[in-house]
Protein backbone atom coordinates (compact mmCIF):
# COMPACT_ATOMS: atom_id res chain seq x y z
CA UNK A 1 0.00 0.00 0.00
CA UNK A 2 1.47 3.32 -0.99
CA UNK A 3 -0.30 6.50 -0.04
CA UNK A 4 0.82 9.74 -1.61
CA UNK A 5 1.39 12.22 1.14
CA UNK A 6 3.77 14.99 2.11
CA UNK A 7 3.91 16.09 -1.55
CA UNK A 8 3.42 19.73 -0.54
CA UNK A 9 6.72 19.56 1.34
CA UNK A 10 8.67 19.82 -1.92
CA UNK A 11 6.91 23.10 -2.73
CA UNK A 12 9.16 25.50 -0.76
CA UNK A 13 12.32 23.94 -2.20
CA UNK A 14 10.94 23.86 -5.73
CA UNK A 15 9.72 27.45 -5.42
CA UNK A 16 13.14 28.55 -4.20
CA UNK A 17 14.91 26.83 -7.09
CA UNK A 18 12.38 28.22 -9.56
CA UNK A 19 13.00 31.79 -8.35
CA UNK A 20 16.77 31.58 -7.81
CA UNK A 21 17.75 29.22 -10.65
CA UNK A 22 14.87 28.66 -13.08
CA UNK A 23 13.95 32.29 -13.59
CA UNK A 24 17.59 33.47 -13.87
CA UNK A 25 18.22 30.74 -16.44
CA UNK A 26 15.35 32.01 -18.59
CA UNK A 27 16.54 35.56 -17.95
CA UNK A 28 20.05 34.66 -19.14
CA UNK A 29 18.58 33.16 -22.33
CA UNK A 30 16.53 36.34 -22.79
CA UNK A 31 19.43 38.70 -22.07
CA UNK A 32 21.62 36.80 -24.55
CA UNK A 33 19.36 38.28 -27.23
CA UNK A 34 20.38 41.84 -26.34
CA UNK A 35 23.38 44.06 -26.80
CA UNK A 36 23.45 45.04 -23.15
CA UNK A 37 26.30 46.92 -21.61
CA UNK A 38 25.65 47.24 -17.87
CA UNK A 39 24.42 50.76 -17.11
CA UNK A 40 23.31 51.48 -20.70
CA UNK A 41 19.93 50.65 -22.20
CA UNK A 42 19.77 47.18 -23.77
CA UNK A 43 18.69 46.81 -27.36
CA UNK A 44 17.51 43.61 -28.97
CA UNK A 45 19.86 41.91 -31.43
CA UNK A 46 18.15 38.53 -31.78
CA UNK A 47 20.81 35.91 -32.36
CA UNK A 48 23.41 38.64 -32.93
CA UNK A 49 25.44 37.71 -29.83
CA UNK A 50 25.68 34.11 -31.02
CA UNK A 51 26.82 35.25 -34.49
CA UNK A 52 29.37 37.47 -32.78
CA UNK A 53 30.52 34.50 -30.74
CA UNK A 54 31.18 32.33 -33.81
CA UNK A 55 33.52 34.99 -35.20
CA UNK A 56 35.22 35.70 -31.87
CA UNK A 57 38.77 34.33 -31.65
CA UNK A 58 38.65 34.58 -27.84
CA UNK A 59 35.60 32.30 -27.82
CA UNK A 60 37.38 29.63 -29.87
CA UNK A 61 40.49 30.09 -27.73
CA UNK A 62 38.34 29.63 -24.61
CA UNK A 63 36.72 26.53 -26.06
CA UNK A 64 40.12 25.06 -26.91
CA UNK A 65 41.59 25.86 -23.47
CA UNK A 66 38.50 24.40 -21.79
CA UNK A 67 38.84 21.09 -23.66
CA UNK A 68 42.63 20.98 -23.42
CA UNK A 69 42.49 21.42 -19.63
CA UNK A 70 39.55 19.03 -19.37
CA UNK A 71 41.28 16.27 -21.33
CA UNK A 72 44.66 16.27 -19.59
CA UNK A 73 43.25 16.77 -16.10
CA UNK A 74 40.57 14.08 -16.50
CA UNK A 75 42.95 11.50 -17.96
CA UNK A 76 45.60 12.16 -15.30
CA UNK A 77 43.05 11.94 -12.47
CA UNK A 78 41.41 8.78 -13.76
CA UNK A 79 44.71 6.96 -14.27
CA UNK A 80 46.20 8.04 -10.93
CA UNK A 81 42.86 7.59 -9.13
CA UNK A 82 42.57 4.03 -10.45
CA UNK A 83 46.14 3.30 -9.43
CA UNK A 84 45.51 4.65 -5.92
CA UNK A 85 42.20 2.79 -5.58
CA UNK A 86 43.77 -0.54 -6.57
CA UNK A 87 46.61 0.11 -4.16
CA UNK A 88 44.27 0.93 -1.26
CA UNK A 89 42.05 -2.03 -2.12
CA UNK A 90 45.00 -4.39 -1.60
CA UNK A 91 45.62 -3.06 1.90
CA UNK A 92 43.92 -5.00 4.66
CA UNK A 93 43.75 -2.13 7.05
CA UNK A 94 42.64 1.28 5.88
CA UNK A 95 43.08 3.65 8.77
CA UNK A 96 40.95 6.65 9.57
CA UNK A 97 44.09 8.76 9.50
CA UNK A 98 44.83 7.72 5.91
CA UNK A 99 41.26 8.44 4.83
CA UNK A 100 41.24 11.89 6.38
CA UNK A 101 44.55 12.55 4.66
CA UNK A 102 42.98 11.57 1.36
CA UNK A 103 39.98 13.89 1.79
CA UNK A 104 42.01 16.92 2.89
CA UNK A 105 42.93 18.16 -0.62
CA UNK A 106 39.38 18.22 -1.95
CA UNK A 107 37.69 19.71 1.11
CA UNK A 108 40.08 22.67 1.18
CA UNK A 109 38.56 25.85 -0.30
CA UNK A 110 39.73 26.20 -3.94
CA UNK A 111 40.97 29.70 -3.07
CA UNK A 112 43.26 28.22 -0.43
CA UNK A 113 44.46 25.57 -2.90
CA UNK A 114 45.19 28.26 -5.47
CA UNK A 115 47.11 30.48 -3.04
CA UNK A 116 49.06 27.52 -1.69
CA UNK A 117 50.24 26.48 -5.16
CA UNK A 118 50.91 30.08 -6.13
CA UNK A 119 53.62 30.16 -3.46
CA UNK A 120 54.95 26.67 -4.22
CA UNK A 121 55.11 27.33 -7.98
CA UNK A 122 56.50 30.85 -7.77
CA UNK A 123 59.35 30.90 -10.32
CA UNK A 124 61.79 32.75 -8.07
CA UNK A 125 60.99 31.68 -4.50
CA UNK A 126 58.94 28.51 -5.00
CA UNK A 127 59.77 25.08 -3.66
CA UNK A 128 58.79 23.46 -6.98
CA UNK A 129 61.71 24.96 -8.88
CA UNK A 130 64.06 24.15 -6.04
CA UNK A 131 62.96 20.52 -6.33
CA UNK A 132 63.53 20.57 -10.10
CA UNK A 133 67.03 22.05 -9.85
CA UNK A 134 67.91 19.67 -7.03
CA UNK A 135 67.04 16.84 -9.42
CA UNK A 136 69.26 18.41 -12.09
CA UNK A 137 66.35 19.65 -14.19
CA UNK A 138 65.95 23.19 -15.54
CA UNK A 139 63.61 25.47 -13.53
CA UNK A 140 60.20 26.24 -14.99
CA UNK A 141 57.99 29.32 -15.16
CA UNK A 142 54.96 27.14 -14.34
CA UNK A 143 51.87 29.38 -14.19
CA UNK A 144 53.74 32.27 -15.81
CA UNK A 145 54.57 30.26 -18.92
CA UNK A 146 52.00 30.51 -21.75
CA UNK A 147 52.88 27.00 -22.90
CA UNK A 148 52.87 25.36 -19.46
CA UNK A 149 50.09 27.19 -17.65
CA UNK A 150 47.30 24.78 -18.65
CA UNK A 151 49.23 21.61 -17.74
CA UNK A 152 50.24 23.31 -14.49
CA UNK A 153 46.61 24.08 -13.60
CA UNK A 154 45.76 20.48 -14.55
CA UNK A 155 48.51 19.39 -12.16
CA UNK A 156 46.99 21.42 -9.31
CA UNK A 157 43.52 20.04 -10.02
CA UNK A 158 44.90 16.51 -10.25
CA UNK A 159 46.59 16.91 -6.88
CA UNK A 160 43.29 18.10 -5.42
CA UNK A 161 40.84 15.61 -6.98
CA UNK A 162 42.73 12.33 -7.56
CA UNK A 163 41.95 11.18 -3.99
CA UNK A 164 38.24 11.82 -4.62
CA UNK A 165 38.30 9.60 -7.71
CA UNK A 166 40.31 7.01 -5.80
CA UNK A 167 37.68 6.88 -3.04
CA UNK A 168 34.82 6.51 -5.56
CA UNK A 169 36.66 3.71 -7.37
CA UNK A 170 37.62 2.09 -4.05
CA UNK A 171 33.93 1.99 -3.09
CA UNK A 172 33.24 0.44 -6.50
CA UNK A 173 36.00 -2.15 -6.09
CA UNK A 174 34.79 -3.16 -2.65
CA UNK A 175 31.26 -3.68 -3.98
CA UNK A 176 32.43 -6.10 -6.71
CA UNK A 177 31.41 -9.75 -6.25
CA UNK A 178 34.34 -11.72 -4.79
CA UNK A 179 33.39 -15.00 -6.52
CA UNK A 180 34.17 -13.54 -9.95
CA UNK A 181 37.74 -12.91 -8.84
CA UNK A 182 37.99 -16.38 -7.30
CA UNK A 183 36.78 -17.94 -10.55
CA UNK A 184 39.21 -15.80 -12.56
CA UNK A 185 42.07 -16.84 -10.26
CA UNK A 186 41.16 -20.51 -10.75
CA UNK A 187 41.21 -19.91 -14.51
CA UNK A 188 44.73 -18.60 -14.07
CA UNK A 189 44.10 -14.88 -14.60
CA UNK A 190 46.65 -12.80 -12.73
CA UNK A 191 48.14 -9.34 -12.68
CA UNK A 192 47.59 -7.23 -15.74
CA UNK A 193 45.35 -9.73 -17.54
CA UNK A 194 43.05 -9.89 -14.50
CA UNK A 195 42.96 -6.09 -14.35
CA UNK A 196 42.21 -5.68 -18.06
CA UNK A 197 39.76 -8.54 -18.56
CA UNK A 198 37.93 -8.72 -15.22
CA UNK A 199 38.47 -5.74 -12.92
CA UNK A 200 38.22 -2.87 -15.41
CA UNK A 201 35.05 -4.08 -17.19
CA UNK A 202 33.37 -4.64 -13.82
CA UNK A 203 34.57 -1.28 -12.51
CA UNK A 204 33.60 0.62 -15.68
CA UNK A 205 30.30 2.00 -14.29
CA UNK A 206 32.16 3.51 -11.30
CA UNK A 207 34.81 4.94 -13.62
CA UNK A 208 32.18 6.61 -15.80
CA UNK A 209 30.44 7.98 -12.70
CA UNK A 210 33.70 9.49 -11.46
CA UNK A 211 34.42 10.88 -14.93
CA UNK A 212 30.95 12.47 -15.07
CA UNK A 213 31.37 14.19 -11.71
CA UNK A 214 34.77 15.55 -12.70
CA UNK A 215 33.58 16.56 -16.18
CA UNK A 216 30.94 18.87 -14.73
CA UNK A 217 33.54 20.57 -12.54
CA UNK A 218 36.34 20.67 -15.11
CA UNK A 219 34.29 22.11 -17.97
CA UNK A 220 33.15 25.01 -15.77
CA UNK A 221 36.46 25.23 -13.90
CA UNK A 222 36.77 28.68 -12.36
CA UNK A 223 38.11 29.26 -8.85
CA UNK A 224 41.66 27.92 -8.97
CA UNK A 225 42.29 29.51 -12.38
CA UNK A 226 40.90 32.85 -11.29
CA UNK A 227 43.00 32.85 -8.11
CA UNK A 228 46.25 31.80 -9.78
CA UNK A 229 46.27 33.37 -13.27
CA UNK A 230 42.88 35.04 -13.95
CA UNK A 231 43.15 33.51 -17.41
CA UNK A 232 46.71 34.63 -18.12
CA UNK A 233 49.45 34.98 -19.10
CA UNK A 234 47.65 36.76 -21.93
CA UNK A 235 44.72 34.46 -22.58
CA UNK A 236 46.72 31.24 -22.25
CA UNK A 237 44.52 29.85 -19.47
CA UNK A 238 41.30 31.70 -20.31
CA UNK A 239 38.69 28.93 -20.28
CA UNK A 240 35.15 29.65 -21.54
CA UNK A 241 33.96 30.16 -17.97
CA UNK A 242 36.77 32.64 -17.20
CA UNK A 243 36.20 34.45 -20.50
CA UNK A 244 32.46 34.65 -19.86
CA UNK A 245 33.06 35.91 -16.34
CA UNK A 246 35.46 38.59 -17.56
CA UNK A 247 33.09 39.69 -20.33
CA UNK A 248 30.28 39.96 -17.77
CA UNK A 249 31.86 41.31 -14.63
CA UNK A 250 35.06 43.00 -15.79
CA UNK A 251 33.85 44.52 -19.09
CA UNK A 252 30.17 44.55 -17.97
CA UNK A 253 29.22 43.24 -21.40
CA UNK A 254 26.20 41.43 -19.93
CA UNK A 255 24.37 40.37 -23.10
CA UNK A 256 27.41 38.79 -24.71
CA UNK A 257 28.46 37.15 -21.42
CA UNK A 258 24.99 35.57 -21.19
CA UNK A 259 25.44 34.09 -24.68
CA UNK A 260 28.82 32.69 -23.60
CA UNK A 261 27.29 31.15 -20.47
CA UNK A 262 24.49 29.55 -22.51
CA UNK A 263 27.13 28.09 -24.84
CA UNK A 264 29.09 26.72 -21.86
CA UNK A 265 25.95 25.21 -20.31
CA UNK A 266 25.06 23.49 -23.60
CA UNK A 267 28.59 22.11 -23.69
CA UNK A 268 28.36 20.76 -20.12
CA UNK A 269 24.96 19.18 -20.80
CA UNK A 270 26.21 17.60 -24.04
CA UNK A 271 29.21 16.00 -22.32
CA UNK A 272 27.08 14.82 -19.36
CA UNK A 273 24.55 13.39 -21.84
CA UNK A 274 27.27 11.52 -23.74
CA UNK A 275 28.68 10.12 -20.50
CA UNK A 276 25.18 9.06 -19.39
CA UNK A 277 24.86 7.05 -22.63
CA UNK A 278 28.30 5.57 -22.04
CA UNK A 279 27.21 4.69 -18.49
CA UNK A 280 24.37 2.61 -19.91
CA UNK A 281 26.59 0.73 -22.36
CA UNK A 282 29.09 -0.28 -19.67
CA UNK A 283 26.42 -1.32 -17.15
CA UNK A 284 26.32 -4.98 -16.19
Amino acid sequence: MRRRRFVWMVAPAVAFVAVMVGFPFVDTLWLSGFAFHFGAAPHAVGLGNYRLLLGDDKFWNGLWITFYLYAIALIAQLVLGLYLALLLNRMRRFSKVLRSLLISPFVLPPVVVGLMWLVILDPSIGAANYLLTALGLPPSLWLASPGLVVPTIALIDTWQWTPFIALILLAGLQALPADVFEAAAIDGAHGFALLRRVTLPLLAPSIVTAATLRSVDLLRFFDVIYVTTQGGPGDASETLNIYGFRQGFVFLNIGYACALMIALTVLVLAVVGLLARLRRTVAW
Partner: peptide, 16 residues
Amino acid sequence: ARMAPGALFLLPWFVM
Protein backbone atom coordinates in the same frame (compact mmCIF):
# COMPACT_ATOMS: atom_id res chain seq x y z
CA ALA B 1 20.80 23.40 -10.49
CA ARG B 2 24.01 21.95 -9.14
CA MET B 3 25.54 21.14 -12.53
CA ALA B 4 25.07 24.48 -14.27
CA PRO B 5 28.00 26.92 -14.25
CA GLY B 6 27.50 29.43 -11.45
CA ALA B 7 27.89 32.46 -13.71
CA LEU B 8 24.75 31.36 -15.56
CA PHE B 9 22.69 32.55 -12.57
CA LEU B 10 25.15 35.13 -11.40
CA LEU B 11 24.71 37.42 -14.43
CA PRO B 12 20.95 37.91 -13.99
CA TRP B 13 21.32 38.00 -10.21
CA PHE B 14 23.85 40.78 -10.56
CA VAL B 15 21.51 42.76 -12.82
CA MET B 16 18.48 42.07 -10.61
